Amino acid sequence: MRVQAFMFYGCAIFFLVTDVVYWLWSGDWTGTTAMALAVGLAGLIGFYIHFTIRRLENSNGGPLYEDDPEGEIADAAGELGFFSPHSWWPLFVGMSAAAIALGVVFGWWLVFLGVAAILMSTIGFVFEYYRGHFAH
Score class of each variant (00 low, 15 high):
Leu113Thr: 07
Ala98Ile: 11
Tyr130Met: 12
Ala36Cys: 11
Ile73Gly: 04
Gly46Glu: 06
Phe106Gln: 12
Pro69Lys: 06
Asn60Ile: 14
His133Gly: 00
Tyr129Cys: 05
Ile49His: 01
Ser87Tyr: 07
Gly94Tyr: 03
Leu24Pro: 07
Arg54Asn: 13
Arg55Asn: 09
Ala42Ile: 09
Glu79Cys: 01
Met1Gln: 10
Val17Arg: 10
Ser96Gly: 09
Glu128Cys: 02
Glu70Ser: 15
Leu16Asn: 14
Leu16Glu: 13
Glu128Arg: 03
Gly78Ser: 06
Gly46Asp: 06
Arg55Tyr: 09
Ile49Gln: 09
Gly27Leu: 00
Cys11Ala: 15
Ala74His: 10
Gly103Asn: 09
Val105Ile: 15
Gly124Met: 09
Arg2His: 00
Ser87Thr: 14
Glu72Gly: 04
Asn58Gln: 15
Ile123Cys: 03
Asn58Cys: 08
Asp67Lys: 10
Ile53Asp: 13
Thr52His: 12
Val111Gly: 03
Ala99Cys: 11
Ser84Leu: 13
Gly132Glu: 02
Phe125Ser: 04
Ile45Trp: 08
Met7Asp: 10
Ala12Phe: 01
Ile45Asn: 09
Phe8Trp: 11
Ser96Asp: 00
Val111Pro: 04
Leu91Glu: 10
Ala42Pro: 07
Arg2Thr: 10
Val39Gln: 01
Gly43Phe: 13
Gly132Phe: 04
Pro69Asp: 06
Ser96Gln: 02
Ala5Glu: 05
His136Met: 05
Gly124Ala: 08
Gln4Asp: 15
Asp68Asn: 12
Ala135Lys: 11
Ala98Thr: 06
Val115Ala: 05
Asp19Ala: 15
Gly62Phe: 05
Arg131Gly: 09
Tyr22Asn: 09
Tyr65Leu: 04
Phe112Gly: 10
Gly31Phe: 03
Gly62Leu: 03
Cys11Tyr: 14
Glu128Met: 05
Gly31Thr: 00
Gly132Val: 02
Ala76Val: 06
Ser87Lys: 09
Gly62Pro: 01
Val17Phe: 12
Gly10Tyr: 02
Phe92Cys: 00
Ala101Ile: 07
Val104Met: 12
Ser96Lys: 01
Met1Glu: 11
Pro63Lys: 12
Gly78Met: 05
Val111Asp: 04
Ser87Gly: 06
Thr32Ala: 07
Leu110Glu: 06
His133Lys: 10
Asn58Ala: 15
Ser59Trp: 13
His50Val: 03
Ile123Lys: 08
Ile100Asp: 02
Trp108Cys: 04
Val3Ser: 11
Trp88Leu: 14
Leu64Cys: 03
Trp25Asp: 14
Trp89Asn: 04
Pro69Trp: 04
Leu56Glu: 11
Phe112Thr: 08
Leu91Asn: 11
Gly124Phe: 07
